[in-house]
Design a protein around this nucleic acid. Structure first.
Lengths: 156, 156
DNA sequence: TTTTTAATGAGAATGAGTCTCAATAAGGAA
DNA sequence: TTCCTTATTGAGACTCATTCTCATTAAAAA
């Protein structure tokens, strides 16, 4: 609670500094992201807000999510199924993902060795590394054991 | 030349085995892929073929590229800009990519340490690793030195 | 309270990729 | 070689996430 409030205040000042307006839609979208641990897709956020009778449009959700990404509050991730996912970046440090191809389950991981190698490889090839994209795709334990039904998750 | 011919023969037998037909379009698309080292996008392959007066449609290029991927001749890669790239898989062993965000230059790399860690991480999380997606994004030497103009490459 | 102009919403537009289905053409059979 | 079956193709409709447009609405400065 306290942390979320702090983030709300931070976002408001970020908006003011950029002389952007503090609108009910922007704040509602921010809170929706702050209060969820999952990797949310735009339409999912849109539906949640509408269910809570928040007056907002898809276009505004997209615009605000982009804005939140720009100010560093949100991480936009591409898991390769044609829909972007957004997650609270302030709450969580950098990480990559393992994705179950059957049920869509997403698990986070960080590996210092890999991060180290990425830096070295980039340098070796004369690149200034700005960001990376790293996903492992496979089958989670439950899906291998046949405890789940296909179709649900990502088809990436 | 010799190698390409061998691949053509291989593809023909793969088609026969699956009781699929050997068509001029399929062979033209295969040759287009075989004779290029680059990472080609579908529309690019389509245009090249049309320029060579090969009678083919976009739908067929997509279909054949998927077919070539299924039989393991082609690797379909997603660099996150909304368009898939295809590359000759027979010619090149597995590798990942470093992509310049300004000029779109793509450099290939392989890192056994990373591959090793990917396997370990997957196992640790109970996943059976089936494939991965790994790209490094940054600025290549020439772009950092201001020797290139933006706009061309990927906007991933 | 008024004014200015950024933000919003509804719906049109975009664009890569997929699907449909009538026309075409492999390739096995005769 | 010709015929026949049926896989393949092509043109264009369609999908679907995301972006764009522009008239309307509403922050927030005056």
């Amino acid at each position: 609670m306290k942390i979320a409030d702090e983030h709300i205040t931070l976002f408001k000042s970020a908006l003011k500094q950029a002389s952007l307006r503090i609108t009910s839609q922007r704040m509602a979208i921010l809170e929706e992201i702050l209060h969820s641990d999952q990797h949310r897709e735009c339409d999912d956020i849109y539906s949640s807000l509408r269910a809570k009778h928040v007056s907002v449009s898809r276009a505004t959700v997209y615009r605000t999510l982009d804005l939140l990404e720009q100010v560093g509050f949100v991480r936009k991730m591409d898991i390769g199924d044609g829909r972007f996912r957004y997650e609270n970046k302030l709450k969580q440090p950098h990480h990559d993902h393992i994705i179950c191809l059957q049920c869509g389950k997403i698990v986070e991981f960080i590996d210092p060795h890999i991060e180290q190698r990425q830096a070295t490889i980039s340098k070796d090839h004369g690149f200034e590394l700005l960001r990376h994209n790293h996903q492992l795709f496979g089958l989670c334990e439950r899906c291998r054991d046949g405890e789940t039904v296909p179709s649900k998750g990502t088809d990436a």
